[in-house]
Amino acid sequence: MTAAAAAPVDAAVPIEVRGLVKRYGALTAVAGVDLTVDAGDVYGYLGPNGAGKTTSLRMMLGLIRPTEGTVRLFGRDPMQSVQALEGVAGFVEAPAFYPYLSAQRNLELLAAFDGGGARGRIERALSTVELTGRAFDKVGGYSHGMRQRLGIAAALLREPKLMLLDEPATGLDPGGMRDMRLLITRLAQEGMTVLLSSHLLAEVEELCNRVAIVRSGSIVYEGEISALKRGAGTFYRLRTTDDARALAVCVAQAGVIDVRRARGHLEFTADEPAVALLSQALIESGVLIAELAPQTVTLEDLFFSLTEGDGALAVPAADRAAQAASQLVGPE
């Protein structure tokens, strides 16, 4: 066994991915992903369908061999030995079980593969996901939501310190989604590190402290959600008696950026002093203000800006203001 396969679980970073690439012929599914998930993080891995999230997760779990780059789980390489998955559990895409066996039998089988005291944890795991009453029913008759919950139960058998969950709430009804969120919150509160791949932005915003946003196989943002939102600044909604004149005033006003027309109002980004000056300029221009209210940038706004737009929203507001000012001044 190499040193990379034998590192102690407690000492190392739960997930460390460097330069991860996966190519299928001419198609690059994952294009140089770098990310670090620290102990205690609930880390959102966000991206539209086909962005390479699941492929990345499969490489992290040793199911797919990377074309380039390295994955370390608690300092160990999952491609070298399955021992790298000690303390790690989770599922990619929908969790899958033998449909002709009961949930109990499926878990017994997986516990036998895990060894140790996994078998003794079956009852508690089933109870945690509220499947005790259906434990002896064949999994073939389970709903999608029940299988998702059974997937969590199967993961809990390993007493993981790191859980990798791929779209755990997909296909669940609103109640199931709420239960899944509560479960993940509880696991995180108990000290588990969670990597949550999802495209449910509200879920990620509620659960995660850090995110990586993936676009076409590459990470376009990696860091804390709060920093991302702080960097984006606050945008304002402005309704006036003369939006056309107001637009001209806004564009000319220093510190006011990203000015755009919306349905029946204007939107722009600025800090508070700039907004105060803008309101004075509007009145001096004879434009009366009907509404001037700050709006919170949601993760969804940032996500679409990063994955579909030019990513402007995710550029710190100060940088954008400086950029806009230089454009107003023009070349010397």
């Binding site: 499969r58 779990l61 040793g62 199911l63 030995s81 399955v82 021992q83 998955l85 000690e86 559990a89 989770g90 599922f91 990619v92 895409e93 929908a94 969790p95 899958a96 079980f97 033998y98 449909p99 997986l110 593969f113 895990d114 060894g115 199967a154 390993r158």
Partner: peptide, 15 residues
């Protein structure tokens, strides 16, 4: 077919 290979290979068994 059942999708269970990934389930088995992410437990504590070598391939």
């Amino acid at each position: 077919h059942n999708g269970t290979l990934k389930t088995v290979l992410t437990r504590s068994l070598e391939r």
